[in-house]
Design a protein around this nucleic acid. Structure first.
Lengths: 207, 207, 207, 207
DNA sequence: AATGAATGAGGATTCATTCAT
DNA sequence: CATGAATGAATCCTCATTCAT
């Protein structure tokens, strides 16, 4: 209590620096993936773009794969942020409003960084980090299922696991395909129609 | 504009022997993709497994990409075979039967060679042959849309393009996720329930 | 019997070429080891000196280690050639003449390529090819032991294994140290004295 | 003339703390060499095992080579301790007893740390610290030669330099090969026989 | 047409060493 | 003096592709 620690503890200096390096690397990786594609994302190139030496890259990431995994993770975290928030928000809403919200959020999530999303979906060989992606999927399933369960009385009798699976698959697919392949639907009007329709489908299904 | 390597087979393979060689190469590629993954699929390995020299490989395929594209194409043709047949078959059926048939066919299509399907979906960097995949998607959209149009009178007023988009996305996603991630749903009983539910959702949506 | 094979069977053309490449690589490796030391012997450098591409190097040798092992092997084969010949030659000689011959051969063997011998002894990390070196040692032990056994009647009662071990160790060490560290003993006169003395020691020991 | 990195410790390490650090570093190096081999002995790893930062390592040793040289040196000092003591002890003994003592000591010396001895013999590229090793050899030669000279009257007429060279080579080789390759001879009984035989050979040779 | 040896650019990774803090 | 983050030259190795035979 007597001696106050230095405002910036010594380790903090380096921690800040480390953190910055790590961030720069992940950011550089994402940038290259988006701008030049997976093939061009060599570790030397990534380090260069990050303004760091290759050595530093390997100080923080044990392999190229790990770096890409970090990019995926970061992207997934952002998406999960939206999804978790939406599901929290939705907890007390009736099914139709909730579904509409979720559909909207799904599209928003895919629009956080559509180019990155496309590259991750199309160019990244899924090898190893499958675990993470599955964990991500499981969490979404779990959260949605919990919501549906809480609303069971407003719905017809239904196998909750299957309903969750179908609804999540549907919403995800519509959002994914829209953002990746239907540039023309991204106008506000078309979007509204799309959300309406998708919501109608899912809600109609649930009750 | 980076120049991409050519993607179309170099010659028509009219002669029987040529044809056999081409087939052996495509088959070998598919086998390696399934058994050992994309990373192990080097041109030398492919030629070896095909029982041909690398030189011959390049006689028939201008690049590795072209070979992989051929595998994708072959797989897509098989799928399209099922889908086209189903849509022909379905032409005179009422919406509910038709949708049920299409859902069933979608799952069957994904089950033609699930391991290959997974590899193509997860490990192949989509670079170049996007054109083909999109053509494939467009054809499905067009065929489905034509069917829906012919049944317009049995359906509510609806934007046909959007409805097609949503339905196709949904069915494809359910089939895809089921085959790739839900091994437990592949029992006959679970399958039937899944088809029932998906059909219910889509049909409910359309009318 | 009817059709005579072509004078140079087709495969021979390439086999000759392959053989030449392999030889060039081993030779280049040896040369670099001798002239520039183990540290400078990078695979790219070796390929360059061999007048071949790195790719070719890896067509024939699975690793840098394998190449070095081949150099060691070649050197050991040359030595074993001398040693085997000497032991054959010696079979009917009395012990004193035989030992003299073996001592002489040991020195000759170390002088086949003293610089290479030094590098192999001093700079090459023994990792993996230990097996070969041990096989080599075992063969020498076996051959020498067989000779000693055949001369048992001319020798005192003695544990043959131990005697072999001691004699081989001694002769090898004297030859090795002479060639590597005693440049001044390589004059003919000094050599003769050295052989005399070593022979005297070993022969004196055996009877 | 390639410039070799410096090999001598950078400072005298007079202070206790410095001394402790230096010791820890040398000890860590030896430990890693023995336990994981030369390849794993990176400076960072050494520093880590020593519980010191790489920076500190370079405070005391100007290069990795210097560190390894220190390990070799320490090991050689231990050996020289034994050898010097033995030679002092032996000064007044007759040749047969003296030789027996020296043979015994040679084996003991190799058994001080057989694993380290093996690594130093087999894995360390001798580059630079040759000087030290040669100094070591020269000292042994000198000491032994001095002893033999003092016993000249008990020996036949003989070139002392050559006799020293042959005897030292022999004793060293027997000890070295026994400890490294003849685990089965390390039983007390076998050891005694081995010492007897080696002694017999050397003594027989000297007179 | 077929063969398979040869090519070599390019990529991932390591590690001795330095230097700002 | 100590620290450990940063450096980057250097190394091993792969693999799509070519071309002499």
């Amino acid at each position: 209590m007597a001696r106050r620690p230095p405002t910036k503890p010594r380790k903090n200096a380096s921690q800040t620096r480390s953190r910055a390096t790590v961030d720069a690397l992940v950011e550089a990786t994402a940038r290259i993936l988006v701008r030049e594609g997976f093939e061009k994302a060599s570790t030397n190139r990534i380090a260069e773009v990050a303004g760091v030496s290759v050595g530093s890259l390997y100080q923080y990431f044990p392999s190229k794969e790990a770096l890409v995994a970090a990019v995926i993770d970061r992207h997934n975290q952002e998406i999960m942020g939206l999804v978790r928030a939406a599901l929290a928000e939705v907890a007390d809403m009736p099914v139709d409003q909730a579904v509409r919200r979720l559909v909207t959020v799904a599209i928003e999530a895919h629009r956080i960084d559509p180019k990155l999303h496309r590259v991750l979906a199309e160019q990244i060989p899924r090898t190893g980090q499958l675990a993470d992606v599955e964990a991500f999927n499981r969490e979404v399933q779990t959260l949605v299922r919990a919501y549906l369960e809480s609303r069971r009385k407003d719905m017809r009798r239904i196998d909750l696991d299957m309903a969750t699976f179908i609804c999540v698959s549907t919403i995800e697919a519509v959002a994914h395909n829209t953002v990746l392949n239907q540039a023309e639907m991204l106008s506000d009007k078309a979007m509204k129609a799309l959300v309406d329709e998708t919501t109608r489908m899912v809600v109609g299904y649930l009750r």
